[in-house]
Amino acid sequence: MDIHSKLLGGGVAVLKLEGKLNMVSAPHLRQEVHSAVAAGNSKVVIDLSAVDFIDSSGLGALINGLKSTRQAGGDLRIAGPTEQVRLVLELTNMDRVLNAYETAETAFSE
């Protein structure tokens, strides 16, 4: 899985993931979120529009990131979940914990 990061206005960091978010790639995501928070960007958007598969390890990395951003006074939001990601979020009830937005740009815009 590849991770591309960029900054939006207002200290929002966007991490765009490409590929599969599974036990191989989940530690990479955890590290990237921690790096964003350490750099002072505690509002983080995980752009999942190019992620075709997530497993429970990937969910764990998202929850880990959610907790670390909130501890720093920010939040972690997800954008553009694909069909498999939406299914996994629903089956695990994570759709009530991780707010999904249509695009990365709208996740912190309200």
């Binding site: 497993d55 429970s56 929850i63 880990n64 907790k67 089956l91 009530r96 914990v97």
Partner: peptide, 11 residues
């Protein structure tokens, strides 16, 4: 909700 593991088998 905030557990980081344990969802695999239930899923």
């Amino acid at each position: 909700d905030y557990a980081e593991s344990g969802r695999g088998i239930p899923m």
